[in-house]
Design a protein around this nucleic acid. Structure first.
Lengths: 208, 208
DNA sequence: TCGTAATAACTGACCGGTCAGTTATTAGTG
DNA sequence: CACTAATAACTGACCGGTCAGTTATTACGA
């Protein structure tokens, strides 16, 4: 009756949290917070639902952990990128554009961004963390770089924070396009190509 | 016990659907589809929950109606705008930028857009309608205008559809910013100002 | 007084969270 | 090394609350 060699489960305390979060990321990204079922997360993690509660208190805490996971590594990447290009703004923009497009093109960063946007109303404190710890810094770094370039006379007058939005907007649009309309048959965009063309356009458009 | 003159309800078959959809739009925009309660929609429409089912079959149908409602009038606005500016691209862009920013700045269009994005995975056919009947035409019109300007030698080479995304992206970003981060304490953007600066930047950046 | 808009009480499915019991693993004993 | 006791990871049936959708009944208008 009972399968001889095959044990019913294994005890792998150290690995579970990571596996659960990976499964949760996938399910949350597919269904959104409310429609995500803990049973499905558990099944994909190869675990029973009860086991989830050995590692996390509530569904919300799992969600928080998934989102929080994305923050630290990306902050490091941003800081490194800005630090690596203290010179003329076009250098920074070309490097950053390519890097960010590549990042967002494969990583689950785009899916998480969409979740944060989608669930912001029901989890304001989550939007706050994402904003305070990632978005503000990223946009701030870009704003500072633009302002510095203006001070150097490289960039024409204009609100630097607005220039930052102008720079980032199309990437966000591309991600939302991919997450929203491509699954429904829309023509996809080549994100790195969009980033490249946009950076070149912005460099010309911002020139003093 | 029963209030003398005040009738408990009135029969207003003709007005109900509109009132229900207005209430539903508000609640869906505030909470998202899953977290929206039919009891709350009914209460805001000044009606009992059962009454909703006299006019709509399911919660989904109400949602569909709310989203569908946004399509026709905006399509007309887009067609009119493009038709009004057959000449040089900058004229069209300046007019369209101001108009769209104003539209999105007050109308519930932004809220609905966010809902479509947020619920796309759970209601693919809704994303499809929104895409096929609104987004494709809007982006297509913009793409055609850019391509025409390229043919006239006004605009430098580059993928016209990508130029269209570049043009629209920052507006979408501004809307998402308002809907996601401003309620959480983020510094808001002046959308019309962003649109203006972006249009001017893009005009320079796209020039042949 | 008849037809129906509208209500309000009701139902049943669903799902987050719990917990008593099961099983893999480790530590202890001779 | 074998056997067993002790531990803790893990399971899965279950419970209670919630809420979309239904229905028996009421009240308005003609």
């Amino acid at each position: 009756m009972l399968p001889a060699g095959e044990p019913k489960f294994r005890r792998r305390k150290a690995d579970r949290p990571g596996e659960i979060l990976a499964a949760a990321l996938a399910v949350f990204a597919e269904r959104g917070f409310a429609a995500a079922r803990l049973d499905e997360i558990a099944a994909r993690a190869g675990v029973s639902k009860g086991a989830l509660y050995l590692y996390f208190e509530t569904k919300e805490e799992i969600f928080r952990a998934v989102v929080g996971q994305m923050i630290a590594p990306n902050m490091l990447a941003i800081r490194a990128m800005v630090a690596a290009h203290p010179g003329p703004l076009p250098d920074l923009l070309r490097a950053a554009g390519a890097r960010i497009a590549a990042l967002v093109d494969v990583a689950p960063l785009g899916a998480v961004a969409k979740m944060v946007i989608g669930e912001a109303r029901n989890f304001p404190e989550l939007a706050r963390v994402w904003h305070d710890e990632l978005v503000v810094h990223a946009l701030g770094a870009l704003t500072d770089a633009v302002a510095a370039a203006q001070a150097r006379g490289e960039v024409r007058p204009g609100d630097p924070r607005t220039f930052a939005i102008q720079l980032v907007g199309p990437i966000l649009m591309g991600v939302m396009w991919r997450e929203t309309f491509v699954p429904v048959g829309a023509e996809p965009f080549d994100l790195p190509a969009v980033a490249h063309q946009h950076v070149e356009t912005m460099i010309r458009g911002m020139a003093a």
